[in-house]
Write a protein that binds this DNA or RNA. Sequence first.
DNA 1: CGATCCCGCCACATT
DNA 2: AATGTGGCGGGATCG
Length: 886
Amino acid sequence: ENIFDRSRMAPKTPIKNEPVDLSKQKGCTPERNPITPVKLIDRPQPDPWTPTANLKMLVSAASPDMRDREKKKELFRPIENSEQNDVPDLLQYDMVDDSTIDEFEKQRPSRKQKSLGLLCRKFLARYPSYPLSTEKTTISLDEVASILGVGRRRIYDIVNVLESLHLVSRVAKNQYCWHGRHNLSQTLKTLQEAGELQYGELVTFQHKEQDMEYKSGEQKKETMPDSQDRALLDFSEADCTSASANSRKDKSLRIMSQKFVMLFLVSKTKIVTLDIAAKILIEETQDTVDHSKFKTKVRRLYDIANVLTSLCLIKKVHVTEERGRKPAFKWIGPVEFPGKTDEPRGHSPTSGPPSGARRGAGAPCHICATGKQRFTRHASFNGAQPCEGTKRKVSSEPSSPREERQDEYCSEMRNLATVCRQKIEEDTRYVARNPSVTLPPSLLPVPGDSDICISALSQAVFPVVQADVPSLLLPKVVSSQAPSAAAASKTENGKPTLLPSQPFLCFPSSSFLMLCGGLQENPLRENPLAAGDVGTRSAEEKASPLEAQGAVPPANCQKRSSHTCVSPPAPADDEEPAAKKQSMEQSDVPLSLVVPKKPVESPTAGSAPGSSCASAVHLGACHRDLSSPAAPETADKKSPKLLDSQEQEKWSENKDLDEPSPGKDHIAKENANQPFVPQYLYVQPTAGLSSFNFLFSANQAPSAIGLAASQLPSLSVPCVMVPSAALASFPLVCSPAIPSPLSPVPDGSSAAASMNISMSGLASTTPVFIGTTAVVTPNASSSPSVDPQQTAQPAVHLSPVLARSCSAVKLDSPVCMGHPLTLLKLQQPSSTPVTPKSIRPARHEAFFKTPGSLGDPGAWKKSEGNQTRNASSVQRRLEISSTSAD
DNA sequence: CGATCCCGCCACATT
DNA sequence: AATGTGGCGGGATCG
């Protein structure tokens, strides 16, 4: 399109165009972005016909860089084209004469072609939904603007919304960091919680009346909590941006975006009409519903909605009320989030982490920045990366419509699904193009299970998640009472067998992840550090795969959970689970029925301290995530923060029990990643669903190596995606993982050795590993269909490993299934009993400041065993997990 | 004609 | 002061 536009321009005064553009750009960063100007020039190249063409040619020749960029553009173009039909027009134009062009020009660029939604899709197409942890993508606004051929202002519109969801974070002036959707689910969860606090009542009203929105809207709009809540949100966000000051008005677009999303998440129907949203968002003067103000608000909402639509989080629908048909948007993104957190913030930010270096907010950003450096390293690793299998093509249409009430919805859903699918495909392509780049750790992981998982997930999962809580609730409830039953019921897919009897299985998986992660991490770091050799590097690269593995396991768990029952939590949870479940139920309930609002949370918290803790953890994680979307990137740094993060992680881990906190060690090494660790936290809580999360988090942790890990956090989303890709990746992962183990533990020396060993250190761990592998293997074999190619590749890479893994696998799978408990036990033993928990708690508290939520932590806190940590992160995790399990 | 929403002025923030 | 950000709303398009 850009080209075309230019072409249009060109006819008259091609030369001028350039100058013009420059003027527009204001010469911003000409140095950095020679690109912009160049691009203009470049475009001309394509048009031989134009008189100016020659000039263009010359220019282009002059700037090779430009060409490269052009090439890049072209790469993306396919995507664009696929989505849109503009191409023809463009072609025509090109074909046509200048004179003709002028006339056509105007027409051609129909407004739609310039729509923010389209632009946003193009923008998103440029980046992987689930970027590899290692890669940290930096986005240059100027560059993107020029590439997409739009004014910078428009890019801000997009970026601001993306930022509100933590898909990107601002690193510096004109520079944004791409995080992808890894943290999305967590962010949404946080928003949901905040939304319940703020808009719970509203929701209720809406439900009652859907139509009547006014009243309810006005009534509730703002309440005490509201302001506070906002603050919370803001803070969380702020963290990222800058703890210190929220400059300017506070970026209404960002806040509006979050609030808008919150409305969806809180809404029972998941449908929000524009006018209602506008009214609610007009905070202040509810009464004064200034027409003009209202109108402006609606305009902004359209902007936001366009971006959210591009993200496949919402879709446009129409609500026919008494009065008539009103424009509205329906949430089509994930609805349930594993754990429900309750508490609000803990200001992680400034509290003062030891490092002092970063002020709260800054941390994330910093991390990103730092990440870059690290990235480099990682990048090198990546390059080698063996596995790429990552694809998440998988399947699934993003979401199956769960609500059927309206035919329209169904059709719309399909559309969405299509869109999503496209997006996925795009991602896949992207990955294919840049194997090293993206493997979403979380995604990949799933390998073995992937088959199962995928199939199950695509069907079962979605429904569950999106559909609603009900399913969740059941599980929870069931779990509390009779988990097995729940599991059984859910085991639709097939794997149920594993879980059927014991929902707990999930834990094991999570535990696996944890273990893997720990191992992986160590290896990675160590490899680079210790070995430095090429070989080592390779190992490192492999390590990333390992990470994937780690991630995978969780996936498996999830799958299982999903199949069998969501309840996975039950197992480990024991006590907690029930509490959580309850909380979940409550939370769920709101969704289905009325919004409990705050009350709900409180009850949950009260019921189960553990749950509260979990929530707290989440929050912490969220904050971090928010603050440091780039987390993955950040992994590298060692700053004290990391420690904190580690602590947090531990914390989270503790909660779940499952997660041992292997991460710590790696954290120490990598530091940077750790911070993200919090992600791990996620894992814990939620029962059934949580299993997913957990896994992810675990993965992430492992992935930490790759930076990506930090992001991993995103529980749900990734999970979904994962399935497809997961399989392929898995195998690879496994192999790599093996190597990685070495490094991690003391024995690192024996890298080669097998993963088991490496893992080391933990006998208990080893088993876990196997399990994972096993899982993977099966998947690969079983579900080659998903990614035959990928799988194949991985296999190749892994082959050596695979052999081992295979054996292991067999064992594992059975074991895993059956042994959740066992695993735990093992872990415990292996883990140092004492410290992990204790340690974490302390740190956590310091960090988060949410002692209350943590409550339990105190117990954990006991004493920190830094030493212990050093000894073996894995062990710690195990320990932690065990403790948490308790 | 109402729904959408592009465009870009202009103010505030940051450098 | 220059430049980065982004609020804001006129008015063009779409349906």
